Amino acid sequence: MTRNLSAPTGQPHGRAPHRGRAWLLGVALPVLVTGAAWGLTARWIPRLPEEVALHWGADGRVDRLGSVHEMLVTSGVMGGVSLVVLGLCSVLLGRTSFTRRMLLGLAAGSASFFAGLHVTLVAAQLDVTDPAATPVPNGGFTLSVVVAVLAGILAGALAGRDPDRPATGPLPATAPRAHLEDEERAVWLRRVAPSGPFLRWGGVLAAVYLGLSLWFALISGGWFVLVIMGAAATLPMTMLVWEVRVDASGLTARGTLGWPRQHVPAREVVEARTATVSPFREFGGWGLRTAVDGTVGVVIRSGEAIAVERTGGRRLVVTVDDAATGAALLNTFAERSRARPDTA
């Protein structure tokens, strides 16, 4: 049976776990970091010239000056919008550990990044007499990026694992099953990778992207930009090829290097089914993604996928060949785990 991913399932969403951590890491910590940065710069404002550098060109020279008020408003709007949006998402969303780690990491990392940029921009112009001659504060910008990444990783690591939520009700009668004897074991294993055209065009775009990054860093001396763009290009490489496995423990999807990893225990499966997925329309892109409704997706290409409904209103979708076989076997193991919970 094939259903559209957006079809309602009737399962309750449940309350997101670790609410205290969400408030602490997604709201309180970003507010404290932002407040500390603005408190420090407030003491420095009298030491700033009437006009300050607002932007540097590719040659490393100031190409735009403005008032201190304009600089503060720009920094305040960028940091403030990020603070509010990510803070709300942190406390309202996050039913799965992946979504929770991502949101709390973004909240803490973004706050650290914008606070670092703000402090760097102000500190670079203290007591200057000619703001047009202010050099690019590459060291401060680079440090801001490093601190932001570390803050995001730490917040994500502290976001908390999903609690154990075994399913209690029976699987729907319409859920497909695999035909296994009572003591028979089985493993379903598939490797999923992007299509050939996707890899070819992706390789061309990646080469152009890295080339432009290197060129910009060379002519501007802005090596912090190369650090940012290089890190942004490296992470997706770990999500191009996935191994998908269904066995008695449940469904497991692992990235190229064994990470990232998504696992659904058989005892938490409400129902597994097939779905037809459009990565861009439903998830906004390819890779390990989160949809608007909170569904986590390992979406490497369009087409057939295993869609797993979990307890607590959680969902995982994995695009893979022969999804019907994988879904049926997962349902069988889920049903077996209910009958023998002590061995699940």
Rank of each mutant, 00 (worst) to 15 (best):
P12W: 04
P17Y: 05
R19M: 11
L32I: 09
L32H: 03
V33N: 00
A37R: 02
W44Q: 15
I45Q: 13
A53R: 04
L54H: 06
W56Q: 07
G60H: 05
V68K: 04
M71G: 02
G79E: 02
V91W: 00
L92T: 12
L104N: 08
F114Q: 02
G116H: 10
G116R: 02
H118E: 01
V119E: 00
T120I: 04
L126P: 14
D127T: 04
T129P: 06
D130I: 10
A132W: 07
V145E: 04
V145H: 05
A148I: 02
L150S: 06
L158A: 13
G160M: 10
P166H: 12
L171Q: 07
T174V: 12
A175Y: 01
E183F: 13
L189W: 11
V192L: 07
L199T: 11
V208K: 01
V208L: 11
G211M: 00
L212F: 12
L212H: 03
F216L: 04
A231V: 11
P236W: 00
V241C: 10
W242L: 08
L257P: 07
W259S: 14
Q262L: 14
P265G: 10
T276V: 13
S278N: 15
F280W: 15
E282H: 08
L288V: 13
A291C: 10
G297Y: 00
T311G: 08
G312S: 07
R314L: 09
G326C: 10
L330E: 11
T332P: 06
F333V: 07
D342T: 12
T343H: 14
A344R: 07
